[in-house]
Design a protein around this nucleic acid. Sequence first.
DNA 1: GATCAAACCAAGCAAGCGCTTGTTTTTTGG
DNA 2: CCAAAAAACAAGCGCTTGCTTGGTTTGATC
Lengths: 203, 203
Amino acid sequence: MSRKGRKEQILQEASHLFSHKGYHGTKIRDISEASGILSGSLYAHIQSKEDLLFEITDRGGDAFLDALRPIVESEAPAEEKFRRGLKAHVRVIAENLEAATVFFHEWKALTDERRKIIQEKRDEYEALWARILDDGERRGEWQLTDAKFTRLLLLSAANGLYQWYRPEGDLTPEEIARRFADILLNGVAGKKGERTIGGCEQV
Amino acid sequence: MSRKGRKEQILQEASHLFSHKGYHGTKIRDISEASGILSGSLYAHIQSKEDLLFEITDRGGDAFLDALRPIVESEAPAEEKFRRGLKAHVRVIAENLEAATVFFHEWKALTDERRKIIQEKRDEYEALWARILDDGERRGEWQLTDAKFTRLLLLSAANGLYQWYRPEGDLTPEEIARRFADILLNGVAGKKGERTIGGCEQV
DNA sequence: GATCAAACCAAGCAAGCGCTTGTTTTTTGG
DNA sequence: CCAAAAAACAAGCGCTTGCTTGGTTTGATC
């Protein structure tokens, strides 16, 4: 197989195995077997097992950042940013479920510098969401009683999606994101207010 | 050291290591070293490394179930159950942070039957929350547009707490639970309505 | 169809893994 | 104070780990 194709295949198999068995629970021979080559032959394509983990998590981080950044930097109202951001977030998870799982669940297995790089991307992602929340407050679209706490709850809920999202489920990523936003903006009871844009009116 | 004391110490050290480095990332010699004995001496107290993981996760599951069950089975209004349930949930995490982390993060490393036991406890816990949500709907305290989705979001947010809760933080577990409930019931903007009991009025 | 680099295989190394065994030390109860 | 029991040690076994090495096959290029 061609160099690039094989490398991508290895990354995909590694994502699959890491997301299901964890980084330390996945052995280099598991990856080679899934890739259809011997374990020694892997090292024509990678330098180390940890390289695989880093590349998967690093790409995952970039996917989230690249999706959210343009939304944050746009000129839309905060609630629209909020809803578009959630839509982007859900879509990234839906389209890269295994990589996203590794990004959220296994990044701590990285050592030192590489772990720090991923940590920084996670921090940056959190900061982007903080900007959205802060933006809405400055524009008077909402008043948060505790911005930091709100951000943590929002991210916990959103980042937990990888644990239950299944592509064969009956909700599309867009619908998931909309319900997500409705609940977070208006509460679980789905109170409809003047503040809601593109809410759950068709349900 | 006495048999019981040593065993508890080993469980605690294992919880600490598992929660920070993961089950597969923690070696039996790490645990013995942290416990101040040689690795072989561990086996006077445990039967296997996996026994430790099972005991930690099993106790964790029981802690959550024992805290929530009496609340669900009480006769209080649904919103009170909701708030008391969240308070119990946060308290269990706060008082058993490392065990809770292992329960949420490492239980999948268990093999077969034991994994199934933990899975069933997780399912039961989720079902208890479903009863609370359903209860509020039957009593007319709220109308959920999607009960299953609401439950998943609620649990994602609540279960994610172990990732950012720090005992040295400035919010007490009770305050965390109250803000949690306020946001989930009324939305991030903290709209105060007739539905709110014991809300964030003192903030 | 000779060339040559990329891709792969076959074999295995050094280190580390979970755990066992046989022995010594420490604790405990009469 | 002594014997039984519990706890810990010292040593290492059989296996697996991530990775390396040296040689062979494959496939594109001229």
